[in-house]
């Protein structure tokens, strides 16, 4: 499998605080890759650099062999930010329609795409509801739908299930697995261990360092522990 994302020697600092230190990472085509780490570990910063909305102090990010940022890439990358980037005054449909037109879909394609992504996140009957009346979970699902509008081949999700109940979380993961089967590469950040377990491969991030990167099973085996949590703590200790 070829690599979809290749990160080389990425460094970044906010003022004096170094948030990313010597990050090297490769993400392969068709996998669900998890970025695991506590809040403040640098997950969001790293993700924004892959998306191309933040520039690293040094190091490079390649997506599908192309250097980030590139307009060409933006057409095939879906991004769901940590905050629900939705226009509260508009309806679900209007929000999606707006994004779809920016991706250059024509009227017919837009209508079809809206119907399709709303079906995926199970929001069809709320299509015409104003977003400010949505519950937190519905907004999260709509954000996911918004990042799928242009049928991206790489999907980047920053804490997609934060603040979401277990049932909904389950259904979002089912969606992700389905998208993976359709050939999508998915990068997802999380600080929840049982979610990390569901990823094909995993990078553990702590204080801006990448302390480990492998499949969940291998990570546990390497440290001879039962849970990812123990593995994370163990890797953290050995790094210090």
């Amino acid at each position: 499998m070829s690599s979809v994302i290749a990160i080389q020697n990425l460094e970044h600092a906010f003022g004096k605080e170094r948030v990313l230190k010597q990050i090297d990472l490769e993400i392969k085509e068709g996998e669900i890759f998890g970025l695991l780490g506590p809040s403040g570990a640098g997950k969001t910063t790293l993700v924004k650099m892959i998306v191309g909305i933040m520039e690293p102090d040094s190091g490079v990010v390649y997506v599908k062999g192309e250097k980030v940022p590139s307009f060409n890439l933006m057409k095939s990358v879906g991004y769901m930010a940590q905050s629900d980037a939705l226009y509260q005054e508009l309806s679900a449909k209007e929000n999606l329609d707006f994004l779809a037109s920016i991706y250059g879909l024509n009227k017919k394609e837009r209508a079809a795409a809206i119907q399709e992504v709303l079906r995926v996140v199970d929001l069809i009957e709320h299509k015409n509801k104003i977003v400010s009346n949505f519950s937190g979970g519905m907004k999260r699902r709509l954000s996911l739908a918004a990042s799928l509008m242009h049928k991206p081949t790489l999907l980047i999700l920053d804490e997609p299930t934060v603040g979401i109940d277990p049932i909904l979380r389950q259904s979002i993961w089912e969606n992700l697995r389905k998208l993976k089967e359709e050939g999508m590469t998915i990068l997802v950040t999380t600080h929840v261990m049982d979610e990390a377990e569901k990823c094909d491969r995993l990078a553990m991030l702590r204080d801006g360092y990448m302390i480990a990167c492998d499949t969940p099973t291998n990570l546990k085996r390497e440290k001879g522990v039962e849970t990812l949590e123990d593995a994370f703590l163990s890797f953290g200790r050995s790094k210090q």
């Binding site: 924004k48 909305i53 990358v77 930010a81 940590q82 629900d84 939705l86 994004l99 920016i102």
Partner: peptide
Amino acid sequence: TQGTLEKLLSTPIK
């Protein structure tokens, strides 16, 4: 503040 600017900048909009 609501994050839509960032979202927009992740799309091919100039």
